[in-house]
Design a protein around this nucleic acid. Structure first.
Lengths: 104, 104
DNA sequence: GTCATGTATGTCGAAATTGACATATAAAGA
DNA sequence: TCTTTATATGTCAATTTCGACATACATGAC
């Protein structure tokens, strides 16, 4: 649930520390986005390096060209699971994925 | 979609190379599971190190104790997104998450 | 004992994600 | 120009994941 946290926080009950909560959420969210973007970039790199089209990668993944395009664009409706799955499908090892994350 | 790939592959059309496809899928799936398990372990480590209960972490996350338990058990209905989000919420940096992944 | 605290497990409706499809755009070759 | 190939964007029904809740199982303090 992407917005659940903020929704909960936005609904009644502030009490105390809301500013910190918001800041915490924002930086956490920013980190997550940067992780997604980093993975998306590595994914495109790997695909091109292997000389595959988005269609070809989609076939490997059991997915569709449009979804591959969304992955590489790091669109918000693409999960980390899907990005990591795609990396692994292109021969990346967990350590490769870890390096991509660490560089985010 | 967790089983989509296999389902698509299992439906008609084998043609050639099915064994390799299956092996590829299996090892990819195994890698994903091991990534999940690694993250789950680090998550628990961090939580305990911070002296937090599952309830306390759930509150930080805007989630529930039961979901935190499922995260730490690496249950299949817990996404990588949620695991990573939880790590970040406990102060981990992307590089920490990356190291956890690389060790998987 | 029982009360409190922390954790595990199962279920549910709601929300998010997925593959698929249609369609658009762009570049390159005939 | 007309094709072809690759990529982008928008939408949708089906599936998956979510937070929440109930409840069970421990462990420890009293």
């Amino acid at each position: 649930m992407k917005t659940g946290k903020r929704n909960r926080l936005e609904s009644a009950g502030w009490k105390l520390g809301s500013a910190e909560d918001f800041l915490g959420l924002d930086s956490e969210e920013a980190a997550l986005v940067s992780i997604r973007v980093a993975l998306a970039g590595r994914l495109r790199d790997r695909r091109l390096k292997l000389g595959l089209s988005q269609v070809a990668l989609a076939r490997k993944l059991g997915s569709s060209q449009s979804r591959v395009a969304k992955m590489e664009a790091a669109e918000p409706d693409v999960s980390l699971d899907l990005l990591v799955r795609a990396m692994l499908a292109m021969g990346a090892k967990p350590s490769d994925v870890g390096r991509a994350l660490a560089a985010a």
